[in-house]
Design a protein around this nucleic acid. Structure first.
Length: 566
RNA sequence: GACUUGGUAGCUCAGCUGGUAGAGCAUAUCACUUUUAAUGAUAGGGUCCUGGGUUCGAGCCCCAGCCAGGUCACCA
């Protein structure tokens, strides 16, 4: 879509032409021999050391024949000093006066050969001996400035623009870049932790014929040659367990999951989960594993186990408190759910301000109570254990109480971060639980599963060793480790509605356009009378069409024609 | 989905009961050889989100819509 260029964009395009006229290729095929990054220069300063660096020009302070600029590379900024006498011969100052001062702009990528020195005020700088344009920037970047007291002026903060133009956000906001560096550190830390224990990273299908392993609304797509619907995965659990059946001791996957549900500060349609399954373990073992894992991750990402999240200070140091769901509800309400019937639970809810409806079974009711009264109170990492059976269809029954399951969730700052089970491996029990879920779904519980994965049941029939599985919401964990309140801040490219709808014509424009389409070229007066538009509407329609570049008025002697542009 | 706040120059933001649209930075031209939010001078730059309406006159008021943020509801 063609768009009007701003003055500054036009100036940069002119510079492009002038550079070419001077024989400088603004987009060279350059293998540029960078020898050092800005951070290393500052950390290991050596007076007079020759360096070759490259990056974006981010600021300039020109003072006649001398000038200071800042070059930004992947690790930060370094000051560079341009002096006319250093880079130009006596009789030709073009390189400094024209190329550097006029034709380069903030945002351009340049390469610099020079040597290190310290200015009179002691700042480590590179004295430029030679520079090359590596890539011209045609669009002015947002330009936050930091003053001597560290205050940032003109910060690029509008979330909409930052998310839509993450590339610009990353260029000008180093703290944003830092979030994503930490995100990657978290992945690396988890991989290391798992790999050191001999567990294997695997991949399982994103396109699935049955969207299993969780209860959520899937995205549906269609495979043309198979002529069948496929679902984008909502979880990878059932596939990973198949691999445990196949004989792997421990498997894990970082999985992009897709859920066709609401979007808000904590939900993006695609998000990342880490799931791991380990054979011959139970959920008690997994709790210890999880707290050790998270302590290790926090250390690797932030260098310490404490993390600030909003008003809270969270400590990831193991071990974490463990509370059963029953005890938790007693703690916060005084109500003991043990042995209560569905009716008793529903009545308690109604008289205690917990919203319920008829579709809710026992498990769901308990979950509502917990969600309403307890969940939000757990700031420090806390394991909530022993969930009702009904809401955990893939989890093994509790060894001490058949109403419960061996399941835990890890709560941090009032939100769930991890979920784990002693996995159900009794194929007959599993089949019955799936069928119970189908009934719940029929009753109207949208969270209940609506499909039975018979292939998964077949796998279980071959036998799955006792196994414990854990899922961690990676995006949420990154939020905690980087003190971000919204998931958009920890995703490079959060889902957004499209910026602009396609050019739509107004009614007047459409009328004129349709008449003209039949004739291609018409005398203006004839076109106007055929359109039967009022003077104002006609004027508006014509102006609109010319603005979109759809029509053009041509003058031939005394006659004016309106011509349709292709 | 409900409520609420916002959308004005490349960026950050002002904008009077409704009367020709402002600032700082950025840009352009000039001066300036160790500055650092460099400085001084001059100049240019705007579909005021879109579409209707009220009005002699709308950036401002009214209606509808689009996009985004926040709160809540729903939901892992």
């Amino acid at each position: 879509m063609s768009q009007q260029l701003s003055e500054q964009e036009l100036v940069r395009r002119e510079s492009l032409t002038k550079l070419r006229e001077l024989g400088i290729n603004p987009y060279p095929q350059a293998l540029y021999p960078v020898t050092i990054l800005s951070k290393a220069i500052k950390e290991n300063y050596e007076e007079g050391k020759k360096v070759v660096i490259a990056g974006r020009l981010m600021s300039r302070r020109i003072q006649g024949k001398a000038s200071f600029a800042e070059l930004q590379d992947s690790e930060g900024r370094i000051q560079v000093y341009f002096n006319r006498d250093e880079i130009c011969s006596e009789d030709d100052s073009t390189l400094y006066n024209e190329v550097y001062k006029k034709l380069l702009d903030i945002g351009d990528f340049i390469g610099i050969e020079g040597e290190l020195f310290k200015t009179q005020v002691g700042e480590i700088s590179v004295r430029v001996k030679k520079f090359d344009l590596l890539s011209k920037s045609l669009k002015p970047l947002p330009l936050p400035k930091t003053d001597s007291e560290g205050n940032i002026h003109d910060a690029f903060t509008d979330p909409e623009m930052r998310y839509r133009q993450r590339y610009a956000d990353l260029v000008v906001n180093p703290h944003v870049k830092e979030v994503f560096i930490k995100r990657t550190k978290l992945f690396n830390a988890m991989r290391t932790f798992f790999n050191e224990r001999g567990y294997m990273e695997v991949e399982t299908p994103v396109l699935q014929p049955i969207p299993g392993g969780a209860a959520a609304k899937p995205f549906i797509t269609h495979h043309n040659s198979l002529d069948m619907p496929l679902y984008m995965r909502i979880a990878n659990e059932l596939y990973l367990k198949r691999l445990i059946v196949g004989g792997f001791e421990g498997v894990y996957e970082f999985s992009k999951n897709f859920r066709n549900e609401g979007m808000d500060r904590t939900h993006n349609p695609e998000f990342t989960a880490m799931e791991i399954y380990v054979a011959y373990k139970d959920y008690n073992w997994m709790m210890e594993f999880t707290e050790n894992l998270l302590e290790y991750c926090a250390l690797q990402v932030n260098g310490k186990t404490e993390a600030i999240f909003g008003e809270h200070k969270v400590d990831f140091k193991a071990p974490y408190k463990r509370v059963t769901m029953r005890q938790s509800i007693i703690d916060f309400t005084g109500f003991d759910i043990d042995g209560k019937s569905e009716t008793e639970l529903a009545e308690w809810c109604k008289s205690n301000g917990v919203e319920v409806d008829d579709t809710m079974g026992k498990g769901k009711l308990i979950d509502e109570i917990f969600g309403e009264k307890c969940e939000g109170n757990y700031i420090q990492p806390t394991f909530i254990t022993d969930y009702p059976k009904e809401m955990s269809p893939l989890c093994k029954e509790h060894r001490d109480n058949p109403e419960l399951t061996e399941r835990f969730e890890l709560m941090i700052c009032g939100k769930e971060v991890a979920n784990a089970y002693t996995e159900l491996n009794d194929p007959i029990d599993q089949k019955e639980r799936f069928e119970a879920q189908l009934k719940l779904a029929a009753k109207g519980d949208e969270e209940a599963g609506q499909f039975i994965d018979y292939d998964f049941l077949r796998a279980l029939e071959y036998g799955m060793p006792p196994t414990s599985g854990l899922g961690i919401g990676i995006d949420r964990l990154v939020m905690y480790l980087t003190n971000n309140q919204s998931i958009q801040e920890v995703l490079f490219f959060p889902q957004m509605k499209p910026e602009k709808k396609a050019v739509e014509l107004s009614d007047a424009e459409k009328t004129i356009f349709n008449i003209l389409k039949a004739n291609n070229k018409m005398e203006l007066g004839a076109l106007k009378s055929e359109s039967a538009l009022s003077g104002k509407q006609w004027d508006k329609g014509m102006k609109g069409l010319s603005k979109h570049g759809i029509v053009k008025v041509e003058v031939d002697g005394d006659t004016k024609f309106c011509v349709l542009q292709s």
